[in-house]
Design a binder for these strands. Structure first.
Lengths: 151, 151
DNA sequence: TCCCAATGTTGATGGCGCCAACATATGTCG
DNA sequence: CGACATATGTTGGCGCCATCAACATTGGGA
């Protein structure tokens, strides 16, 4: 999904230094690296799956709707991603006996193992993404991005 | 295309502070704003169209292949976007008499006008995107992103 | 009780990027 | 010159992430 990696292409001046363009490129860079990492070690799982597993690990069993709210993933995409996770036995789904319209989703031991593996892969990618910057610059960037995002 | 704007959703800890996640969110923010801007004032044009117009304005007439290289847009996508731009008379295409397999694309006066309009819209969006930061922080962020992207 | 809200599912759409295949035109090298 | 490779534009398909519409089911509140 990244734009062409090849920076050989001249970028129009009016585009090249714009904040939105830089954010786009930086994002493309990180997505490309994540993609490569998931490709190599993610066993076919994608960002959605990781986010769902992470949410389940952190807050325990939840309904699909809650998972969607907690991860910012649309209900319909939650359904699709959970089907895949269930197929791999990384999560289990059962109907909530209290509210029969609701599915309670639980992460399985295998799911936890997978989550930990992905954690390692992703941590390495974080380092790779930030590699062009010195340690203090990395901290600066993260602080600024955090303020940008939360602001 | 941004992830859900609603930041109410709790984000899993292991995700929330990761550089790739922050870049993703910052990008989502800028894309959402760009989307809204194009929606309101872009007359249905998309990022591809703007980039092509910008490249034509800056470097003058070019073949479609060159446009693709200069903008990082795939040849096939260049074709589609130019069809739309031609339909709106924002660009003109003619066969290169020297190399009959080649189309020479030229921006029209209307195209220039549209480009300037979009420029204004986009400039405003840049300001909005960076609004949470003070002026010196904005400069810092841009410098860091530039190094990240070029590094 | 009746209506409305929430839930899970299916299916479709859009933006952006990628790639394969093809016909056509243009070299280049034996 | 002729065979071969290369560049170009076009078509069509795929993938990822995000969004929305519509629906049946279930539950809660007025």
């Amino acid at each position: 999904m990244p734009i062409r990696d090849d920076p050989a292409g001249r970028t129009p001046d009016r585009v090249r230094d714009r904040p939105t363009w830089l954010l786009n490129r930086a994002h493309a860079r990180s997505v490309a690296m994540l993609h490569a990492g998931f490709e190599a070690h993610g066993d076919g799982l994608r960002g959605y799956h990781y986010r769902l597993l992470a949410a389940l690990e952190q807050w325990g069993p939840a309904s699909q709707a809650d998972l969607g709210r907690d991860t910012g993933i649309d209900r319909s995409d939650v359904t699709a991603a959970l089907l895949e996770l269930e197929r791999r036995s990384l999560v289990a789904r059962r109907v909530d006996p209290e509210h029969k319209r609701r599915n309670i989703v639980t992460i399985t031991p295998d799911g936890l193992t997978t989550l930990r593996t992905l954690d390692g892969v992703i941590e390495q990618i974080q380092r790779d993404v930030l590699a062009p910057l010195a340690a203090d610059e990395q901290r600066q960037l993260l602080a600024l991005l955090t303020r940008l995002v939360r602001g």
